[in-house]
Amino acid sequence: MKGKTFGKKLFQSVEPYLYLFPAFLLLIMFAYYPFAKNTVLSFFTVNKFREIREFAGIANYIKVLGDEKFIQSIGNTLVFVVVTVPVSIVVGFGLALLARKRTRTSSLYEAMYSMSMAISVSVVAMIFQLAFNPSMGIVNKLFGTNVSWLTDPKTALAAIIFIQIWANVGYNFIFLLSGLRGMSEDVLESARIDGATGIHLLTRIIIPMVSPTLLFLLMKDIAYAMTTSSFTLILTYPVFHNGGPNGTTETIMSYVYGKGIVGTNYNAAFAATTVGFVLAAVMMALSLVLEKRKVNYD
């Protein structure tokens, strides 16, 4: 009897940890361990088998930050973030406002607005690669232009930004739509009775009410955009074997991919990864500070 209660007690005290075990095993193996390992190794010189040769201090960082190509990739990434994140949230929000009111055909256009969420980056890339193709693409045929959108250094980044915005809109729309529909009608109604209309209703009532959703999307989109590389890797790597025409589409993570996976320059790759992470964290913290006073959790 006594043994049984002891066993029961022991089980009771470890039980909550048991439920956490799978999550933490994976979290440590595939998030904290690689993160720590990358950070530690970035302060050492490693050979091409990733074996530590000697302590390097910040030499890897000095070297990678002295690489013109890397600085350019940081600039490209920041441009990418500053354009894609706000534009795709604003467009998604506009569509959500348009679709908020339920009509008989709601489900039809809701599906169309959110569709891009269901389509993979590689399919999106294939479609736009053709659309932007200089000779057979629809973009040039439609506008009578003769631009090689994805290979011209002047347009390549803009084209990739455009593609990314299209790809993001569906996701942002669907979250903002459910945010808008989750608003209490009473509050909206009483605001209307108080005479709030148009822009006023939007900025004073609606935006504060969906601000948690907006903040969530902002953080997610920034984290994603800061570490983006897919469109660069699919659309411009096979052609240029590095970050696009004159490096104009190189992002921080495509640079890391080029150094660490294609090449075996791990010293550059590991230091660049840490720089990329720190910049992403700074961008997220910045948006958090900007947004903090405006978010309404009630």
């Binding site: 999550a23 998030a31 690689p34 990358n38 570490t227 993570m253 990864t273």
Partner: peptide
């Protein structure tokens, strides 16, 4: 806090090391 902390590490940052693992 460790769970929340992991949310600020974007997955693509870990890709190279996870590949080696």
């Amino acid at each position: 806090a460790l769970v929340v902390g992991s949310m600020i590490i974007p997955a693509d940052v870990l890709v190279v090391q996870n590949y080696f693992t």
